[in-house]
Simulated assay, not measured.
Amino acid sequence: MSQSSQRIAPLEPPYAPEIAAHFDRIMRGAPPLMLFRVIAGSARAWEKFTAGSLLDRGPLSLREREIVIDRTCARTGCEYEWGVHVAMFAEAARLTEEEVRATVTGAADAACWSPAEQALIAAVDALHERATLSDTEFAGLSAHYGEAQIFEIILLCGFYRTVSYLANGLALPLEEKAVRFPAQT
């Protein structure tokens, strides 16, 4: 999508000091993502978005967190956010190319995942498909994750589903350095 056909115009620099401080905190000195620049154009939307408080590390490992985020974004068809996360975090999360591809094209029980990661992906898929977890799915998560981690998993799924709605609904152009969805085989 060209800049001229963008649904909602992003903020352009110079940014208000408060917004610039938020961008610096989230992006650690890198230029702010289009998503952030668009949302920050609405004071209320930006306040609610940043109040989600899920842009921090939390009780999951980086790898677990990124599996949840990548799978949620893949299931919602949000190439924008999936591509940003893969580009920025896949290496640090020690996700292999096969695992990255599996977040988009693989089943929850794909052999590349550990049993704990299979339970994690099954939970993401269930929440995406039915907005709930069966007793079996919850027991699968509970076998590997504590209560604080289970809350975080569910919250991340909901938060990144909302992020996906924003990016998809606003037809945000893909970030230049973001990864693209793998070809479906």
Rank of each mutant, 00 (worst) to 15 (best):
M1A: 09
S2I: 10
S2T: 11
S4C: 02
S5K: 13
I8E: 15
A9K: 14
L11P: 04
L11Q: 07
E12Y: 05
E12N: 14
P13M: 14
E18L: 03
I19A: 12
D24R: 15
I26V: 13
I26C: 08
R28N: 15
P31I: 12
L33T: 11
M34D: 12
M34A: 11
L35N: 05
L35M: 14
L35I: 11
F36K: 08
R37P: 02
I39M: 14
I39C: 12
I39H: 04
S42L: 07
W46V: 02
F49K: 03
F49S: 08
A51E: 09
D56A: 08
D56S: 12
G58P: 03
S61R: 10
E66C: 05
I67M: 10
V68I: 06
R71N: 02
A74C: 00
A74T: 03
R75V: 00
E79H: 01
E79Y: 01
E81Q: 09
E81V: 07
V84M: 07
H85K: 01
A87G: 10
M88E: 15
A90D: 08
E91R: 15
E91H: 14
A92F: 07
T96L: 05
E99D: 03
E99P: 00
A107Q: 15
A108F: 01
W113I: 00
S114N: 05
P115V: 02
A126G: 08
H128R: 08
H128E: 10
E129D: 15
A131Q: 14
S134D: 13
D135P: 05
E137W: 00
F138A: 12
F138T: 13
A139N: 09
G140A: 15
L141G: 09
A143N: 14
H144F: 06
G146D: 15
E147K: 06
A148F: 00
Q149E: 15
I150F: 05
F151A: 09
F151W: 10
I153K: 00
L155D: 06
G158I: 00
T162C: 07
T162P: 00
V163M: 13
V163D: 07
V163I: 13
L172K: 10
P173N: 10
L174D: 10
E176I: 08
K177M: 07
